[in-house]
Write a protein that binds this DNA or RNA. Structure first.
Length: 221
DNA sequence: CTCCCGTTGT
DNA sequence: ACAACGGGAG
């Protein structure tokens, strides 16, 4: 057990600023899965339009998408970028999930280890997408590590520059516990912090965690 | 390391 | 016009 005061400190500073966020904008579990694929290397505003298009056509569900031809789906999700890849991946994952579990409800009854093995073998589902599905669609107690997490943890000095994802997750579980709602809230707050302050060119002036951030204290502006 | 891409902000 | 932005596969 490696004790890391800074991570606890960052959590409470973030909670202070953002409060409890009930996050991942989606109406259904299917929609979360669809969103995790569409938002790969893409900002959320681009994804929203796709979701809107899918809803308008009444095909915003895994069962509907599973019977689509990627060729006809591609133009509908165009605004998310990489639409040819994502179109194939989306039809593929919809097929595989509905085939195996029928519904997301059924799927969420399975233990995490089994779900991990299952998800990890799907093309187009990498670490972050898998963890996002586990956490936000299936309500499992999993911490999602994304680009913002890495940047914020490394700048603050919570982790080193290239700490592996598993180590980051371990650090979070050991110091903050593994309550699902808390883990989802932490990830959500880190996303907000990343968008608001911890950008490539950081805006430290109003940053809620600057008091414990190595980047601000030493190298910072 | 390269390819896959549209949207938003400057 | 052009830079910033953001995951995964091969």
């Amino acid at each position: 057990m490696q004790d890391n005061w800074k991570i606890r400190s960052v959590y409470s500073l973030l909670l202070n600023r953002y409060g409890f966020l009930n996050w991942w904008p989606a109406e259904t579990k299917d929609e979360v899965v669809i969103g995790t694929i569409l938002t790969q290397n893409t900002s959320w505003s681009n994804v929203e339009k796709c979701i809107k298009n899918l809803k308008k056509k009444n095909i915003c569900s895994l069962s509907a998408i599973s019977s689509l031809d990627p060729k006809e789906l591609a133009p509908i999700i165009r605004s998310s970028g990489f639409y040819n890849q994502k179109s194939k991946r989306l039809v593929d994952i919809s097929h595989i999930i509905t085939e195996r579990y029928s519904t997301m409800e059924k799927m969420s009854e399975q233990p995490v280890d089994e779900l991990e093995l299952f998800l990890k073998n799907i093309k187009g589902v990498g670490r972050e997408t898998m963890d996002s599905i586990l956490s936000y669609a299936l309500q499992k107690p999993v911490f999602v590590v994304d680009k913002y997490t890495m940047r914020i943890f490394s700048r603050t000095g919570i982790t080193g520059d290239s700490t592996p994802i598993d180590a980051i997750k371990g650090l979070v579980y050991e110091n903050l516990g593994n309550d699902g709602d808390m883990l989802r809230n932490l990830h959500a707050m880190l996303v907000y912090l990343g968008k608001d302050h911890c950008k490539t060119k950081p805006l430290c002036a109003e940053c809620p965690v600057k008091s414990v951030c190595n980047y601000f204290i030493t190298a910072g502006p």
